[in-house]
Amino acid sequence: MARVLITRAQPQADATAERVVALGFDPLIFPLTQTVALDDDVQALGALGDCVDGIIVATSARAVDVLTAAGLGVWAGKQRWAVVGNRAADQLMGLGATLALPPAHDVASLIDGLKGSHEPLTYVAGLDRKPTLEVAFPAMRAIPVYEARALGGFSAEARRQLSVEPPAFALVYSGRGALLLSQAIEDAALQADMKHMRWLCLSEDVAGQAPPYATVHLADTPTQDALLRTLTQTHRD
C-alpha cells in the first residue's frame, strides 16, 4: 500500500487522512505547522455584534474551527457567509448559519460569486495569506483570526519512519508548505531517502516552491478533490 505524506496542521491532517485511506493509501501524518488562534482579533470579531452587516467571508475551514474553539460558534451561526469548500460550509450550516452563496471550489470562483454583491464584506482570514481577495474587493474589512505557525521540522520519530520506509507521495497545499517540507527534509538529511517521493501540488504557485530535485505533479484545479484525483491517477501511472 503506497504511503502518502501529509504535513498539514490538525485537524485538517486527520480529515485529509480519512480521505486518503478511503482511496486505498496509507497516510503518514507529520504536521509541519499548527493553527494558532489570534485571540485578541477573534474576540474583536465577536464584538462586532450578533448580526454583522453584510457577508462574512472565509477561504478555509480553519477559520471556522478557530471561531468554534473560541466559543463563537453561536455568533458564527447568526451570520451570512460566503466560503470556499464544503467542509467550511457544512460546519457553518451545522451552527445554523446562512450561506449567501453556494460553497465555492476555490478563491477565484468565490470572487466571481461575490462580484455581483454590493453588501459589505468582512474577511475572516489567516495571518499569512495572499492578497487576492483584498485586491478584488479593496473595501473589504479583513480580520486575521489565526496563523499557521511552523513547528520546526520533523521529530526524531518522523525522521526514523521517513528514512526506513519513505512515502511515495506528498500532498502539498501551499507555497509555504512546500518550503517547510523542503527545509524539513534538508534539516533531517533525508534528501537521498526521499528523492523518489512525488510532490502532488495544489497549483503552479505551490509547485514553484518545491525543490529542484522534486518530481512534481499538479492538480488540474486548486481544490483538495482535484489533488486527490491526481494522487489516484499518478499512482495508476
Rank of each mutant, 00 (worst) to 15 (best):
D90F: 00
L48Y: 02
M194G: 05
L110M: 06
V21R: 15
G94Y: 03
R80V: 14
V20W: 02
A210E: 12
I6H: 12
E119N: 06
A13P: 02
G46I: 02
S109D: 11
L32H: 11
A158F: 07
T132K: 12
Q43G: 00
T59F: 12
D106C: 05
L180S: 06
E119C: 02
H118K: 12
A37D: 03
D14S: 15
P138Q: 10
R87N: 06
L171K: 06
V66D: 08
P144R: 08
L95H: 06
R149F: 01
V20N: 10
M194A: 08
V64H: 07
T16P: 06
T221Y: 09
D53C: 10
L151M: 15
K115H: 11
P144Y: 10
R62E: 13
Q209I: 00
V21G: 00
A76R: 03
P166K: 01
T223H: 13
A15Y: 00
R62G: 11
D40C: 03
F137K: 05
T122Q: 07
L110C: 03
R236P: 01
G177K: 09
G49Q: 10
I29H: 02
K130T: 08
A37S: 14
L200A: 07
S203W: 07
L228R: 11
V164G: 02
I185Q: 07
L218K: 02
L190M: 07
M197L: 09
R87P: 00
A13Y: 12
F25V: 03
